[in-house]
Amino acid sequence: MARIVGGLTTSHVPAIGGAIAKGLQGEPYWKPFFDGFLPVHRWLDEVKPEVAVVFYNDHGLNFFLDKMPTFAVGAAPEYRNADEGWGIPTLPPFQGQPDLSWHIIEHLVEREFDVTTCQEMLVDHAFTLPLKLFWPQGVPVTTVPVCINTVQFPLPSARRCYALGQAVGEAIRSWDSDKRVVVIGTGGLSHQLDGERAGFINKPFDLKFMDSLVNDPEWATQYSIHELVEKTGTQGVELLMWLATRGAVPGRVRKVHTNYHIPISNTAAGMMALEAL
């Protein structure tokens, strides 16, 4: 059976793509952000994951309001990146792991998750940039994207996303394979792009949330989506991806490294690497 080595979470602001393309990682603005990944690179060199299951949210590249899924699971041989409209460079395709995709899909439907299955799926910055951040020298993992709706309300509750993560974790651990799997969640932390409240950031909540993921992973499931928007901003709800990730890495974890930096673009940028024990 496959083994989950741990969970990785990070913010996924589009501007990161520009910074990577222009080689700005050492600039004063970017250094505190990119430096946070260095200890994680060393850890990944040790544990050498071969597959990544990635919880992310689409930002209007693959899904439109004509067919907006709550949960979508990729089941494609490869996932192409594409123009999102603002000129960050398009990355080469990412390799899929369709046998794991279908194993996850079957397990999720059996567990009464009503997923949308995607045999073709364009992946946006929320999927691509974190992979480049964790593996700047080239992405050595095959992938399974799991997309959670944060575009259109009603959103799935924090509790439902955590349960989704748990079920995905069960599926990975019952996958008939000897591969090492890492779970990744991208998005957040607190930020809001739209409305008069644009620029909202809530550092105390973010730090408490990051802390909870280590030893009290269900802490955030006490909040409704409405409360989470209130506390973290309209885009801060992307923390749902972090919650699903932690749900997939069950039991106790060791904190490999964390980073928190304000601001990248309009975002409180967070990063965590948790090793499964």
């Binding site: 930002h59 999102e84 409209g85 792009l193 739209d194 644009a198 309209t234």
Partner: peptide, 20 residues
Amino acid sequence: NVYYLAKFAGILGLDVQDLG
């Protein structure tokens, strides 16, 4: 919706801080 409007902002060459 902000996710789709962001693509309009892209046409105008505005970043999220301009929008903010």
